[in-house]
Design a protein around this nucleic acid. Structure first.
Lengths: 334, 334
DNA sequence: AATTTTTATGAAATCGATTACATTATTACT
DNA sequence: AGTAATAATGTAATCGATTTCATAAAAATT
């Protein structure tokens, strides 16, 4: 690879002038510019990032922490982040943490070493102690999930409100035995959706029943969704509707119903969360809550870039949307 | 952030000695080591990567090009790559190209700028002209998909052989009207699987019928799978089995059958490819070909690291496995 | 024409780490 | 004891780009 001094020699100017041409600073004769550009083209020169970063004290690289990349729900968010980063001349680097705190710490070292200027976290848990600590020294933005410490920026939907609205919708369909399928993890969204569920029941004057609340595994996987919802459906007074905090669990719910000889939505109404592509791929198509993934990513990224520029942390809530499909219906007359 | 010279001052030694301690070079007194390490801890010092990379002329960063991250099939491969990279003290950076050649070119610039030492490509198309060109100057390894130019390394399964075996299996079940659902893209695996399909038919003495060959969209999406297979099933003499080059298309095939009132596997045998998690999530569970994703990633990565160290390009083929489940059955006696 | 201002360019310092070479201190050997 | 060999550490060059400051040339002003 060629260096700036090779270009300088080729063009018959000093390295300073070449640098000026690259960075489009004024006061370079059009004629000199042409000569330098010709040399750059001839040598296929690309400015070396190490030299540049070292001098400028910035890497123009952003990190994106995701727990795993299997969940299609992250794809839109990442697109939103990457497009915004690119538009601002930042590169991005997806760091797959696998919900492994050790690995996350290793990735945080990329900030300490100067490898990156900031990070967007999609995997913060409720009680995370490390994130606020890192945020003291480096620009961070939490997206979708966040820790309770409110000194760190976050962008998300209002999970409490969304869950409340879902349950209100179910009540409006005539359901009053409404189940909740959560997950055994420490994500704040999980907690908030459960709170929203309870609040809506309370406001509707329906007594909350702990046996109507079950939990799938940490990662919302399909099989644990089946297991959890089967538990719910084998109750004596089984619920006529179940609100699942992820589409994956909801698909499990539909399968569980099928295995127990129940039809969806005739015998059981199922509502999911996230609106992944698979929600429409199988019959019945899933009623679910859609998050503005691309916007969440886009907003997180522009917030991060502002913070790198010195802005203060902030919290932003974006709008969700409830999408009605086949898996929910009014309760049959008893 | 603190620098090496601050550490040197704190420890009362020269920067050279600090560097020696960091890099564990011999001939540093245990006592000095202790002092330096204490200073490092006290200042929370992390060596700056720009300085180091600039001097060492290496970034210890590897790129992973993926067409999209929605496809769960990539998750294992990426895990294999990342674990191997980490074990060799390399960082990795996932670059989502969205099958956009322009964006891929931008990412290649990360190599030219020195941001990365090499790349693993999961998205090379058959006739790609750019990849061999880039491979002249930088270490590249193609994984799963590769271009016909054989000067560039690749790691993959033997798609031709796998497809042949699938069709031989179908023939052994008594099927002789066997359909093929490919995709309208330029991936070499697509072509090789079609060739393997044809070869197996030929060897079994079954005449190939062009009307039994249909194509889903470029990205193997579910809906186009439904469309393509419906075409197949509406033929007068419809096939009794269909081999789909991806699980997504196979799931579409099952749906298509259902919509036309056909049962799987009683009326139609369906075989997929890739063994994604969803293959077991819906009834009937999918018979499919499993690729050793983790090993593909791992092998690609160690090959890349060897190439960075100066080794020559090479080609490696790994073993696939045909996984028999519910969606395939012997043909009913007519 | 002489002086000031502006413009274009170059020389050299700088960013933070590594490393070849130089230097000093210590140990081993005759 | 005096010299050679070895060990521990320091000095300074280096990687490639940016940028401050200096300088030379051109243009504008009086």
């Amino acid at each position: 690879m060629s260096t700036i001094s090779e270009v300088a020699k080729e063009a018959g100017v000093s390295v300073a002038t070449v640098s000026r041409v690259i960075n489009q600073s004024p006061s370079v004769t059009p004629e000199t510019q042409k000569r330098v550009n010709a040399a750059i083209a001839k040598l296929n020169y690309h400015p070396n990032v190490w030299g540049r970063s070292l001098r400028r004290q910035e890497s123009r690289m952003l990190l994106i922490f995701v727990p795993n990349i299997t969940n299609p729900y992250y794809a839109n968010i990442i697109s939103g982040i990457e497009d915004t980063a690119r538009r601002n001349h930042y590169n991005t680097m997806v760091c797959v943490t696998n919900v492994d705190k050790e690995r996350a710490k290793e990735y945080f070292d990329l900030l300490r070493c100067g490898n990156a200027d900031g990070a967007i976290l999609l995997d913060t848990t409720k009680n995370d102690k490390n994130v606020p600590r890192v945020a003291k020294n480096f620009p961070l933005v939490q997206c979708c999930e966040y820790c309770t410490n409110d000194s760190v920026s976050h962008v998300s939907i209002d999970n409490f409100e969304a869950a409340k609205q879902v349950v209100q919708y179910l009540v409006s369909l005539g359901h009053h035995r409404i189940g909740f399928a959560g997950a055994a993890n420490n994500f704040i969204s999980t907690e908030q959706r459960e709170s929203g569920y309870k609040k809506a029941l309370e406001e509707a004057g329906i007594e909350s029943n702990n046996r109507y609340i079950v939990y799938a595994d940490e990662d919302y996987n399909f099989l644990s969704g089946i297991r959890a919802v089967k538990e719910l459906l084998s109750l004596k007074e089984r619920p006529s509707a179940v609100f699942c905090i992820s589409d994956m669990i909801a698909l499990g719910a539909i399968r569980a119903a099928g295995e127990l000889g129940l039809r969806v939505p005739e015998d059981l109404t199922v509502v999911g969360f996230d609106d992944v592509a698979y929600a429409t791929m199988f019959k019945p198509m899933l009623t679910t809550v859609s998050q503005p993934g691309y916007s969440l990513g886009k907003t997180s990224c522009s917030m991060l870039i502002k913070q790198i520029g010195g802005a203060d942390p902030a919290d932003v809530f974006l709008e969700h949307k409830i999408i009605l499909r086949d898996s929910s219906a009014a309760i049959a007359v008893e």
